[in-house]
């Protein structure tokens, strides 16, 4: 697993974004961004077999 450390520097201090009273680490912001992307994708992407089920009803 040592190769991960050669791509992503894991020994450095974390990066933080600071705006007025808001202080958030970049890693946490990325996770929040991924959750929003997943949420939107879940609403927009077609579900397998959806049209077949509608026809059956």
């Amino acid at each position: 697993m040592g190769w991960i450390g050669s791509i992503i520097p894991l020994d450095n201090l974390g990066h933080y974004l600071h705006w007025h009273f808001i202080l958030i680490s970049v890693s946490n912001l990325i996770v929040i961004g991924l959750m929003i992307v997943t949420f939107v994708a879940a609403l927009l992407l077609p579900f397998p077999g959806r049209s077949r089920r509608k026809e059956n009803q």
């Binding site: 994708a41 579900f47 509608k54």
Partner: peptide, 11 residues
């Protein structure tokens, strides 16, 4: 029900 056929229901 048919409306459950959406990715939003799998979480």
């Amino acid at each position: 029900p048919a409306y459950v056929s959406s990715w939003i229901y799998v979480f």
